[in-house]
Design a protein around this nucleic acid. Structure first.
Lengths: 198, 198
DNA sequence: CCCTCAACCGACCGATCGTGCTATTTTCTT
DNA sequence: AAGAAAATAGCACGATCGGTCGGTTGAGGG
């Protein structure tokens, strides 16, 4: 056993908390409810993190890792340029849809939870979102280099509109429950791609 | 005095609660904090609404009314077609930016608060958002009729992308605090307009 | 195998939550 | 001005919150 008992329990807590936070937000996390869900006393759980904020940060970091593993890494296995961008978009939609099961996309929900609540949690969130925009912009630059996109394309603008499509998709799919949400997202993305080509 | 004392107090409560909810959400509203902020006892305040949910609904309805007054009505004063759509977009950005003072756009925040929390509050939110998409689509249809937009334009798709731009704008402006957020939003909107023209 | 220390528990704290119930004060009607 | 009705205050309730503390237990290295 490579993981100590404590570390193993800690990771189970974080994983469980991540699922719970998808439904109630990071602020809405309750140590009591969380402990009851596993076979743990509240204080036993609390001992693993010395504050609720530490738990929140651990959960957010875990979500970031998941996002990288489920969205970014698989897209990187595609050839540079447009194919990789398409996959990035696909996996992004899938991520939103997946987390859609009883909860919004983690990061979008947190955006509204923390855009006016300073602190380390917000800082980490901001950093992760900036990284996400950068990842998209870098993938777009690769597409430029491959000749798939025009040389004068505004990469940051591309990332901006890319993210925007994902955001409406989430609202239309999950709140408004419109089955055409995904088709609309893909149509919007095709338009964006067309507009980016030489 | 046309308003009874009770009704007047009630409206002051709702208005105050709307401001407070912009920072902490509808679920995060606290009757105690709210009452302390005005000169009212918690129970005195509570008596105006027979439940917290009733207060939440009143607050949401109030926000909807504000949105209509600040965004939709002034846009309707513009000539049909593209000018009206431009103003609709302008006022929409201004609304997001205005509510940005210590809080997100009310409706976007509520989207993530209630997309997995059924009940009357969510129902009202869904209705209001559907109305908003419809309003944009109707304005776009007018632009088609005026000959500003092509006849085969997908109106709902237009509304979809319209809203998406507003959503990224909010995140980039408020969470990421990027001063170019507004310019990017306008650039994206111009692209959308260009793509909609005959 | 045993001893040590990390891991965990149970009880408890003060605060705050939404919500009743019962006065008491204020407003409105006559 | 008086009486009915509405508005508000005071108080208490059960629940739940994040967090503390002293003790108990079980895992893991010697």
């Amino acid at each position: 056993m490579i993981l100590s008992k404590g570390e193993q329990t800690r990771q189970e807590i974080v994983e469980r908390a991540r699922a719970l936070a998808g439904e109630v937000g990071l602020e809405g996390l309750s140590l009591g409810v969380l402990a009851a869900g596993m076979n743990l006393s509240k204080s036993g759980l609390f001992a693993h993190f010395r504050s609720k904020e530490a738990l929140q940060i651990a959960v957010l970091q875990r979500a970031i890792d998941h996002f990288i593993q489920e969205v970014i890494v698989p897209a990187l296995r595609q050839p540079r340029g447009e194919p990789r961008l398409r996959r990035l978009f696909d996996f992004h939609l899938a991520w939103i849809h997946g987390n859609a099961r009883g909860g919004s996309c983690f990061f979008m929900a947190l955006t509204h939870e923390y855009d006016d609540r300073p602190g380390p949690v917000r800082d980490l969130l901001v950093r992760s979102q900036r990284d996400w925009y950068d990842t998209i912009a870098r993938a777009a630059r690769a597409a430029v280099e491959e000749g798939h996109f025009r040389a004068d394309l505004d990469l940051d603008q591309f990332a901006y509109e890319f993210v925007g499509i994902g955001m409406v998709f989430q609202q239309v799919a999950k709140l408004l429950e419109d089955p055409r949400a995904e088709a609309r997202a893909r149509a919007a993305f095709e338009t964006l791609l067309d507009h980016s080509r030489p």
